[in-house]
Design a protein around this nucleic acid. Sequence first.
DNA 1: AATCACTCCAACCGCTGCGTT
DNA 2: GAACGCAGCGGTTGGAGTGAT
Length: 243
Amino acid sequence: MVGLMMGWGVAAGQGRRKGPWTPEEDKLLSEYVSLHGEGRWSSVARSAGLNRSGKSCRLRWVNYLRPGLKKGQMTPQEEGIIIELHALWGNKWSTIARYLPGRTDNEIKNYWRTHFKKKAIRPSRRQERRKTDQILRQKQLQQQENDTDKVSPNSVLVNNEAEANFMYPALDEFASSWSDAAVAMEDDLWSDLWNWNADDAYVDATASAAGDRNSVALTQSQATAYSCGDNANTFYAGGYNIF
DNA sequence: AATCACTCCAACCGCTGCGTT
DNA sequence: GAACGCAGCGGTTGGAGTGAT
């Protein structure tokens, strides 16, 4: 995606640059924001010597340059959180992103689109196999991380046994191999998604939130809940404390 | 080796809401 | 209260990369 995409380059009329950011532009933006802070994006564009729109600067910073961003694949926990929160709030990507430290709304939105939305139609066996392999790789990586006993302050914690069972179904309980376990777990997710009426879930959640914020009823996967890092807005097991 | 199918992801656009004048 | 500008959000696009056939 270098440079020539969609006739990008310099936008006619305003003389603003468009398209992919160069390392030099990134450097200018990073230096400026670290000195002066976020906000006032249109003046950032001018003051930092960037021939970009404020909007473009903000997007680049938020989605790519901002410190603390996580790169790499979503973990099974993050995937679970996305599914649950999407059931609650629908396409409120920025809201969902607040519960996934280091992930951006754009990233979550992209992830949802590629992994879930298209698959309202059952994925092909080929897709299923690829997905399964991906989950396996993630599990192996995660196992390695657990072995090294590294716990990030921003990591998403699994609170109790019920969660752990949802996230990591025991082999002897669900399947005879990690591969089968991953497929079984995935099937659960898909069946939830296929049976799920997004509008209903959203209405239920918002109605409950409006009335009693401590007792939002989830229509799917009710036994599952997450405590999301050090965010002040915590999402607890049992009754969902929202805000 | 070539082609196809699919995923990933950066970046755009349009719309909305909010604050300021 | 109206007009304006800006920030933020959600939807969309399309090239690059990768793996399967």
